[in-house]
Design a protein around this nucleic acid. Sequence first.
DNA 1: AATGAATGAGAGTTCATTCAT
DNA 2: TATGAATGAACTCTCATTCAT
Lengths: 208, 208, 208, 208
Amino acid sequence: MNDKKLTRRNILKTRTQQDIVKAAVAIITRQGMPALTMDRVALEAGVAKGTLYIHFKNKKEIFDAAMGMIVEPLFANLAKAIDGDYTPLQKLGNFSRTCIEFFDRNHDFFRVIFFDRNRIQEERKRYHNLYKKFVRRVADIVDEGVREGVFQSLDSGKVAAIFMESNMAVVMQRLDRHDEGSIDDDVKLVLGVIMHGIAAKGAKRLNN
Amino acid sequence: MNDKKLTRRNILKTRTQQDIVKAAVAIITRQGMPALTMDRVALEAGVAKGTLYIHFKNKKEIFDAAMGMIVEPLFANLAKAIDGDYTPLQKLGNFSRTCIEFFDRNHDFFRVIFFDRNRIQEERKRYHNLYKKFVRRVADIVDEGVREGVFQSLDSGKVAAIFMESNMAVVMQRLDRHDEGSIDDDVKLVLGVIMHGIAAKGAKRLNN
Amino acid sequence: MNDKKLTRRNILKTRTQQDIVKAAVAIITRQGMPALTMDRVALEAGVAKGTLYIHFKNKKEIFDAAMGMIVEPLFANLAKAIDGDYTPLQKLGNFSRTCIEFFDRNHDFFRVIFFDRNRIQEERKRYHNLYKKFVRRVADIVDEGVREGVFQSLDSGKVAAIFMESNMAVVMQRLDRHDEGSIDDDVKLVLGVIMHGIAAKGAKRLNN
Amino acid sequence: MNDKKLTRRNILKTRTQQDIVKAAVAIITRQGMPALTMDRVALEAGVAKGTLYIHFKNKKEIFDAAMGMIVEPLFANLAKAIDGDYTPLQKLGNFSRTCIEFFDRNHDFFRVIFFDRNRIQEERKRYHNLYKKFVRRVADIVDEGVREGVFQSLDSGKVAAIFMESNMAVVMQRLDRHDEGSIDDDVKLVLGVIMHGIAAKGAKRLNN
DNA sequence: AATGAATGAGAGTTCATTCAT
DNA sequence: TATGAATGAACTCTCATTCAT
């Protein structure tokens, strides 16, 4: 019993500590990350500013705890999704489902992170709008291909987004690896995957 | 004479404006976005701080101009890439090439934007590292599939990134559209595209 | 029994109080006076912060007790040194010995108090260095006088320090007494004492 | 003319800069060093807090400037006093006079530094009082010696202070040099100087 | 058009002190 | 008596913005 109490404490720490982290999450969710100031956290958590420093060494630790509270479950679930005794294809499926479910569950939070409803950083809004415009135009291309019978009939907006993000995936891999290899090869890679997927050539199709 | 003067003035004004924007880009590139302060921009541009406010309404406008200076060419090129008289497939290829070329050309800038070389905000580093860890684990799954003969042999790191970003693409579409439709369907969509691509079923393969 | 309990309590209370005071002394000695915070005292003493306020009214009282613990013995010994049945000269000798012995015994503590080993307040360091520079220069003057045969051959650094502090002694007496009397007279006083001492003119010399 | 202006500027810098330093000096003088906060300096100087950071990098620089404004002249004069073509004895005399004059001139400032009229650090007051008590007791010893005909008749308070500070001079030399040499020798040194001075044995007395 | 000193709100952090348990 | 979480004022420092020159 005492044990349980202690364990609980260890996991959730103090009520106040929880309140603070929750406050941080709420602020990020409602106002965006740049709004995360110690004053606001204290106000939202209903404690004095000094109290924050009893429970956390500094702002970074509060931020980390807030991110952890949101994001850690994702990574935990993701790990579970691909660690079991599954075929590679099943693993990809699990991964995909876990991702989508997770962001669905936390949509308020991530809508802010990604599209930031917040005041200050609305600079991105403009680029977000431009981005959306291009998604639409790529979707038009997809629709065009569907009409011409060269593409399958799928949700063209989502397909367009997949295509664009696939390019970004390759771009970021190049950036991160400091890889300045053949652009042609990477274009072929993206196009190949988008057009024909990664399934082995003789493999039978997934049943949808 | 007056004309000349005016022209000169216009050029000079433009020059100063350009200097300021260039300074902003240089600071972001070298020191990261949180280092973008008016003081630093003025110093880098070789003008007084007050001068910035003659040419730009506020910091946001300088930031926008800096982003514009970098990003606008991308959107212009992207537009060119898909506006001409091409087949849908060619358009996608053009789009892909334009993207990769562009980020390659501006890799210094975007490495900072994406991976945030700077000191203070290294909070993200942790999440970036977690992300990279998962890319590696998904790449392992891909390799596993290759060994089992169910996936083609491709750069598994890039394929993993494409897969993960494809999921994010769908997630963000859902977020943006406030679409809470069937998760299963979206999992199928992602898996379908990743496995078999979007090419119409009878279509002949791209030649690589 | 109740007696015993009370006694015990009294001892325990005293023990805790002693622990606190010892902790304060240790912190000052090791880390300097600005490091003397209630948190650190509590940690060092092995009690909770609130406990400090049971035994002492406030920080000042802890500081006073700590200073007292160190300095009181000096004043006690000093009193003993000059209270007995000695000649004036013997008293001065006792006084001198008591002083030097005392600071020797507590050198760690006073090196911090005087020379401020700590980081933050290194402002003083600069003035301390200037002071030391002047001690050296005055020592050079003393050495010069020795070579010229007008001064005795003594530890010129210590003599220089004695001379400089003698001036400060007079300065502080003037300050404390709000004495704005003849500067010439005080210069003569210092020079007279430094050159010929205070011994009555006919008196025979101390034997060294 | 422009030259003069520039020179002036270089020496005195901006008016505001002067105001700030003066404000710092005033605060130290009136309220003691711990009262030197940026808020108070700004208030006293009649500028905004942010303005302080235009003219000084941080608090330390303001403090240094304030100390410099007061103390630098002393060191400059002291240097002048001992650098000229004087006999060693004259140099000591010049030094002494410079010291006393200087502290007389800045008595307000140094009374605070030494005896601190301020609230917070009144801890020292107690020790200052103890110190004064001992000066009085040593003065009594001196008077006793005078009556017994072994000491000359001088201002016994100042002589007592000189004696006590001479001991401190030796103590601090020992502390600073980490010198743990013979205490007896140092007692003899102090007593010797106090009793007979440092003049060479055959030298003729100063004329007072 | 250009300057740069001045502003002032607000940031993160520290710490002596209080008080319910 | 002992605890330690909570307080809140005070601290140093940053920075976008204004404005007289």
